[in-house]
Every structure is written in structure tokens, then in C-alpha cells.
Amino acid sequence: MLAEKHQAEIDRILSKFPADQKRAAVLPLLYLAQHDYGYITEDAIQEIAAILELDPTQVGSLTGFYTLLHDKPEGKYHIQICTDMPCALRGAEAFAKEVCENLGIKLGETTEDGLVTVEGVMCLAGCDKAPMFQLQDDQGIHYHENQDVNSTLELIEELRRRESDD
């Protein structure tokens, strides 16, 4: 249960907002839930609604609107390659395609071992360092810039090693 496990963090988040504006804490709590459960589960929605005294619909409806929230289990790691126009001008589409080919998947799919989902996303404000992507995992989101296919595949290998070590 989020409420028990993260009491201090939830209190800290709530303290940022006026007491009658608890709803403002919904995105931070959704991140918290995603961190704990891997994605936004039905239970998480109910829990957050209870904590913030909201209707579950006011919580759950956000997951489809915001792209960083995932409402179903996918790869543990999301490699989100910017394939938007500025990056594409600098080869991002070809880069994405090649990375995927090496992994035996198509853009938007998850590797067979269920570890990595590779997606094409819109501009990440890293256009001058294309090709670039962000890695979203349960710890957060980190940028990887000036990438090439090899460096990316190496990173994925690294992730795999990390997993098998655990």
C-alpha cells in the first residue's frame, strides 16, 4: 500500500500545496505508484484516490493523457528515442530503425525477454545532440545523447547484465 510505505514522501508532496488542493498531488503520486508497481495499476488508482479524497476517475483518467504514465505492463526499461523532426534531420529515424532491427523488434515493441520497450517519441529538447533518447525505468528518466547504434546496444547489454545480477 502506497499510503503506508511512502507516508513521509506523500506528506512531503502534500505539503507543497494548500490543504484544500490535494488534487494537485495526483501526478507525483502516480509517479510514486509507477515506481512501486511498474505501471499504474487499477489498485494504485483506487489507493491514490483514497489518499487524495478524489474519485478514482479523477486519477485514472490522467494515465491516458500523459505519455510518461503507463497503464499496462511493458518493458521494465523504456528506451524512448526522439524521432521528431529536428532529430530526424540528423539521422534519428535511421538510428531508431537500426537499433530495433538489432533487437529483433519494431518501434513501439518490447524485446522478447520483456526487458526493453523501444519507442519513438516527440522532441526531448536534445536536438543538438541527436541521435538521442531517454531511458525511463522505475528509478526515473535519464538522457543519453550523441548516441550511435553500438553505444545503445551496449547500454542495453548493460541493462541485461544488471538484471541478471539482481
Binding site: E42, D55, T57, Q58, G60, S61, G64, F65
Partner: peptide, 17 residues
Amino acid sequence: PVIGFGDRGRGLEIVTF
């Protein structure tokens, strides 16, 4: 507020959780 809008753009739809 037991119904709301979910998703966005052309995907915008009425949802309930």
C-alpha cells in the same frame, strides 16, 4: 465526477475508473 475525459487528441474519450 465519476466520468471524465481520458487520453487526448483524437483519442479523447469518456472514461470511468
